[in-house]
Design a protein around this nucleic acid. Structure first.
Lengths: 111, 111
DNA sequence: CTAATTCATCGTAAAAGTACGATGAAGTTC
DNA sequence: GAACTTCATCGTACTTTTACGATGAATTAG
């Protein structure tokens, strides 16, 4: 991409983009769905459910963790992940606050 | 990426991921913000606001349009874009419906 | 008709993302 | 300690994204 110019934008824009980026792959959406469906943290069962290799799933989990969407703890020989609800709440808030200044205008001039 | 396996996931997961992908760059978030702030559709003024070349902005606009987040019409020698509110409503719904089956469980077993 | 504008598209280059198998670390079990 | 399980990381390959300048199409202005 010839140098990503992310630093030229505001922090809010960067944060929202980073969150969206974490959701920008169906595998990661599917992982979050699985984690959300279980009442206790899951680890390698995710691999069984997804049509991806173990190493690829691990990469996606790392990406989600890096984005702060999930938490992970080591449980003996296995890794345990669960959803970070606070992060989702924060995203919801950011998402809404970014666009709520326009719900006012119902009139469309063009388009 | 060695063949994207998006087709192996459900349509809902793909849709949500596609929407997120469109938001997954600060420039596109900034564009949406600009479009949201104006009560009439803007075109090339976006280029003036963003720290990017005209061709790059045009690419981002094309991406947003392809994702269905904005509408575009040709207005003489210039192009006019505006936000597709229905798409955002749909996304909000998909986003919430994907994760609302877990607001139930407040107890965290681990993590 | 000519010149100037607005913008999309093309070509190109470099970075980032996605995927897999292989390897190895850490822990458990016997 | 030996064998096994579970998972992260490494190396690699290929695709996609991002970015820019250059070019050209379409419209307007003179």
């Amino acid at each position: 991409m010839a140098i990503a110019k992310t630093e030229a934008f505001s922090k809010k824009e960067q944060d929202l983009a980073a969150f969206a980026k974490a959701l920008a792959h169906p595998a990661r959406v599917a992982i979050l769905k699985v984690l959300a469906g279980k009442d206790e943290c899951v680890c390698g069962q995710i691999v069984e459910v997804l049509p991806l290799a173990q190493s690829t799933v691990s990469q996606h989990l790392t990406a989600l963790k890096a984005a702060g969407l999930i938490n992970g703890t080591i449980d003996g020989p296995r890794s345990c992940y669960c959803i970070n609800w606070k992060a989702f709440e924060k995203f919801k808030h950011e998402f809404n606050s970014l666009f709520d200044n326009l719900q006012v205008k119902d009139q469309q001039r063009c388009c």
